[in-house]
Nucleic acid binder design. Sequence first.
RNA 1: GGGUAGGUUGAGCAGGUGGUGAGCUCCGCUGACUGUAGAUCAGCCGUCUUCGACUGUGGGGGUUCGAUUCCCUCCCUGCCCA
Length: 393
Amino acid sequence: MTNASAAVPGTRPLNFDVLLPAPPDGSTRARLGNVHTPHGDVQTPIFMPVGTNATVKALDPDDLIEVGAQIILCNTYHLYLRPGHERIERLGGLHKFMAWKRPILTDSGGYQVVSLGDFRSVDDEGVTFRSHLDGSLHRFTPEHSIAVQESLGSDIAVCLDQPVPPHASSRRDVAAAMVRTHAWAERCLAAHRRPDQALFGIIQGGLEPDLRAESTRVIASMPFDGICIGGLAGDETSRQRREALDVTVPLLADDPRPRYLMGLGSPADLLDAVDAGVDMFDSVLPARVARNGTLWVPEGRLNLRNSRFLDDDQPIQEGCRCRACRSFTRAYLAHLIRADELLFYRLATCHNLTFLLDFMSAIRQALAEGRFPELVQKQSLLRDNSAADGLSA
RNA sequence: GGGUAGGUUGAGCAGGUGGUGAGCUCCGCUGACUGUAGAUCAGCCGUCUUCGACUGUGGGGGUUCGAUUCCCUCCCUGCCCA
């Protein structure tokens, strides 16, 4: 049960080794793993920074390597619109285009089904949407999404799905979106050609336990290389999210494939989801909040826009290895953000990504040493005492 | 010295030629952000007992039921002329 390469022999572009399965005592479902991709290995649990437009905003590939990124996510919808997937293919594929040599996972464009709001409509065939750039009309079908992702040449593609915001949706809508997602999953599998690219299926089902379970069984029954857990990281509470995960993961207990919770990004959320048995994550959160002035530290968060930092000559976080903390003070960063200086975005993004990736690294270390449950306990105490969401490990 | 245009809440403005000027943009303060239409957005930004009330249009005086507006005077600023 620990080796997907045995379960899916030879032909797949991606193998997942469970290096250390969840302990049988049930203290946690967290596990340690290793994803092999054409562009290198990824140790799980892992967080993937998001590089929507073939760039993690404000960083270059050297910065990304320095912060410890092993794999990044790029966005099919955005790259299809601009500069165009055919162009990227002509120019040698996404890795070459953006000079990133490590693995890339592409999103399918499914998320834009919800995030684009008024600009789209969904039917059984696919999604029709208006470009946020020029208002032009476009259509994504499952087949088309796969074709675009194959052009881009990512290591891991994901199925087109229909997420729904948990709280804004009736059970009926959730069920309909789930059924559609399942049908699209079949079509994505059938359309997928590229032998050097993995394909992940996506579970939906909202917060309804029976629908979640049904979706898990359906998606898990298909020969995907990995299982995405979709439709979370939205407006649900952390308790509701955990309940959804506790429905999903046990049904995958004997499944050797990686589990990827789409869209989750705060340290506390990741810790809880790892505990629930999730292997992979992505989110814009660390980079976005950084650009907007919020920096994560072990004690919680700092809003660098606050005037109290103007004379603070400490680094953001004592002992942090990131380039912001190595060289600069809080006062300097507080100055940069007020002056609208571009360097702020790079330094702030470096810090938050370093913080989160080091946090994940500490989680893996704790797992390897059998101290993960203690880590969860310690952090939940810390959280109760300080309402902190920047956690250290 | 003469002429002229002005003086509005930290800054810059709008408006207002007899009947409730707290309106905008900066700056400032605080918060939000989770498969990126986000280097973005929201709230606050004269005072107070804040679902409301009060104060405020350079100073002083006058006319008037009522003045930011009309009159007188002084101060300050820009420009032009001496």
